[in-house]
Amino acid sequence: MALYNDTVMDHFMNPHNVGEIENPSGRGVYGSPVCGDMMLVTINVDENDIITEAMFKTYGCGSAIASSSMATDMIKGMTIDEALEVSNKKIVEELGGLPAIKIHCSVLAEHAIKNAIYDYAEKNGKHYKGLEGYVPETDPDAHEHGCQVDE
């Protein structure tokens, strides 16, 4: 008996892409320990807008860590436009599902990746359709409703 399926447990117990890239192309943070989870994503992007490297550090529960591992796996080799399409639903699908109450944990990865791409775009004066109108938030706690995030 386990709380999570084998894929989730495998990514939690042996997470991929753990760490922080030195001088990355983009760096994004989302969440806070007050809210129970926080993720730092660093990415390297080549001249063709392809994400060549993605690493993470996460404070959080099993599903937050597993989602971080899976999401960074997913975006490696993607173009920026493709990576901006990686939603929390796709991350959950790749993980083979999460308990209903844990779905919000996968939102963490989606937002942190978006923030890293935003950072890259800002630094390089680039524009992407997926970032139009996007205002990065680093801390969902800033909302008046506290730490709850959209599902």
Binding site: L3, F12, M13, P33, G36, D37, Y59, C61, G62, A64
Partner: peptide, 14 residues
């Protein structure tokens, strides 16, 4: 400090 309880619980359970 710096770590979250559910992940501690899961790794201890393992």
């Amino acid at each position: 400090d710096y770590v979250e309880g559910e992940s501690i619980l899961l790794l201890l359970d393992a």
